[in-house]
Simulated scan of single mutants.
Amino acid sequence: MFNIKDMSEDKGVKMTYLVIEREAFNVIGIRLITPYGGGTWGIVKNDGTNNLAKELFGQFFDLGLCFGFEEDGSNDYMCAVASNQETPGAFDSFTFPATNWLKFEAIGTITGQTLTQVWECINTEYLPQSDYKQSHLPTIEKYISWDEAADICNVEIWIPVYLK
């Protein structure tokens, strides 16, 4: 693991990234296809599933896995936790193989669209100019903190990659 550089300070977003080799790991959560981005979080927070995750795994869902978008804009997304426990009946699981990851840390405001800006920088500035290509595994957003009342967020974006 090593720190490469800071990006996007000029856009008001603090974004740092690392290259990490990570062993295989498993996640457990709720995977849904919703007709709009972000819909899965609203569902798991409102239907009690996030509270059930806290009871079963000792924490709320903190991972968002994006499996991809369809042509109609629908999003295949999973709210999850990293866990080696047996998957309870109402939950889904996914196992990531050992792979290399680009890990970006985005710190900023929610109203300032920090997460959107960081994804834009990754997709339009960093990846096209880097030596890395995104693999076909799902990307991960790890929510370290997301405080709407204080309007602050700290989110890690994990992108599975290989050398071009």
Rank of each mutant, 00 (worst) to 15 (best):
K133T: 07
E125G: 04
D62M: 10
E105C: 14
K133Q: 15
K164A: 05
G48W: 03
N51R: 07
V161E: 13
H136G: 01
G29M: 14
F60C: 13
I144F: 05
P35K: 09
G39P: 13
F2M: 00
K54S: 12
A98V: 15
D147E: 13
E120A: 10
C153A: 09
G68K: 09
T40K: 04
I159W: 11
W146G: 10
A53G: 00
W119N: 05
K103I: 12
L127D: 00
L65K: 09
T124G: 02
E141M: 12
A24R: 11
E156I: 11
I159T: 12
K133N: 06
D76I: 00
Q59M: 12
Q129K: 11
N84D: 12
I43K: 03
T139C: 15
K5L: 04
Y17C: 04
G48P: 04
V155E: 02
I28V: 14
S135N: 06
Y77F: 11
N50C: 08
Y162K: 15
P160H: 04
G89H: 06
Y132L: 07
S130L: 02
L127Y: 07
A98Q: 14
G38I: 00
H136I: 08
L63K: 09
V19Y: 09
T95P: 09
I4Y: 14
S145G: 13
T34A: 14
H136P: 00
